[in-house]
């Protein structure tokens, strides 16, 4: 009974006196597990697995972005590769021009690129936010299947544009000869890079937690569950959803910039609809609208891809089976299966 009272007591909630739920411990376990695995792999000298952990962290981050739109906002974007890829190209193009000492995009007054991750991230957040604003503004005029199709169409436009723009490698993609830099740390060190990715992942998780707990999150939840109720209360659902879409795009974009640096390469595959689909699969696998669902989903997805993909080239058949099982029997995804129903206060 005391636990129940604490739950509904604002002061106790604010002071963090609420007994932690099972979901909380699973969240902690997921993070500790990922970090632990990366460190273990590093001390065993398994560089491949350190990079695999980085890959998981980065893809999870992109999925955290998508989860904000899809899971919490109910906007099924089939075009988040556009933002991921855009982030990748910002990192790639910036490094390319810094390397060649030519102005960005070949335009005289532009700066000569940069190899500083911090400035690359800033530009990425800016441009992917802008792209999210444009795509979101237009797409949110539609709903349901049309929303899915229009977001896909935008991403495909980006894909074909990148494919046919020879200045940045076209379909061959663009290599990044040296990983971009951060002050004080060596980004070429695998474990260091993993920690950069993991910290950004944790920041984006923490950010979406704050966001969803705030008034904005309450409005977004209602915009998803019952837009008529929200409008009847006097809050227009459209700008609320658009804002969530923009933030979602920014997080996905930043993940893309990291991904390009992880691989020291950015290619059109980052913009392809396959990747948009993978992100959706990851969000559904992990549990739609669960805060740490994207992390659980990314771990499962990348591990299946790596291990099953090593055993059989038809690994996606097994992925399909797992997905089918989740959709049919565990609607809350992996998080729903492990932690039970999500709770609201």
């Amino acid at each position: 009974m005391t636990s129940l009272q604490n739950r509904f007591n604002p002061q106790a909630l604010a002071a963090g006196l609420v007994p932690q739920s099972r979901e909380h411990w699973i969240n902690v376990l997921l993070v500790v597990g990922l970090v632990g695995a990366a460190m273990l792999a590093h001390f065993l000298g398994e560089r491949f697995y350190v990079n695999l952990a980085s890959r998981i962290a980065i893809i999870a981050m992109a999925a955290v972005g998508l989860n904000l739109a899809l899971g919490f906002g109910g906007m099924v974007s089939f075009g988040h590769a556009a933002f991921f890829g855009l982030g990748g190209y910002v990192a790639g193009i910036s490094a390319y021009h810094a390397f060649n000492m030519t102005p960005v995009l070949g335009i005289g007054f532009m700066p000569e690129g940069s190899t500083q991750m911090l400035s690359i991230w800033l530009v990425t957040l800016l441009v992917s936010g802008l792209l999210g604003l444009v795509i979101g503004k237009i797409s949110l005029g539609t709903s349901g299947v049309y929303f899915i199709m229009i977001t896909l169409a935008f991403a495909q436009m980006m894909y074909y544009f990148a494919n046919s723009w020879p200045a940045y490698g076209g379909e061959d993609g663009l290599p990044i000869y040296l990983r971009n830099e951060l002050p004080l740390v060596d980004t070429n060190h695998n474990l260091t890079f993993f920690f950069i990715a993991a910290i950004l992942l944790l920041i984006s998780l923490w950010l979406s937690q704050r966001l969803m707990g705030s008034r904005f999150g309450a409005a977004l939840t209602m915009a998803h569950l019952n837009p008529v109720r929200l409008a009847t209360a006097g809050i227009d659902p459209r700008p609320v959803k658009l804002m969530a879409f923009v933030i979602s795009a920014m997080i996905a974009g930043l993940a893309g910039a990291l991904y390009a640096d992880l691989n020291r390469f950015v290619g059109t595959n980052m913009l392809s609809w396959h990747f948009s689909g993978e992100l959706i699969v990851i969000v559904i696998l992990g549990g739609v609208g669960r805060l740490y669902g994207p992390l659980a989903g990314a771990i499962l997805f990348v591990l299946m891809e790596t291990w099953l993909g090593g055993v059989t080239q038809y690994w996606q058949f097994w992925l399909g089976l797992v997905l089918l099982g989740v959709v049919l029997f565990a609607r809350g995804g992996l998080m729903g299966f492990l932690a039970g129903r999500s709770k609201d206060v």
Binding site: P10, Q11, L13, A14, R210, L211, G213, S214, R215, F216, G217, A218, A219, T221, M222, R229, L230, A233, G234, I235, V240, M243, D344, V345
Partner: peptide, 24 residues
């Protein structure tokens, strides 16, 4: 939560991103 959204609406404050509603 259902009633809270209406209270939030008359306070005109849906673009606040930080403070948790659960302790507001």
């Amino acid at each position: 939560r259902n009633v809270m959204i209406a209270v939030q609406a008359i306070q005109g404050s849906s673009f606040r991103f930080w403070k948790p509603v659960s302790s507001d």
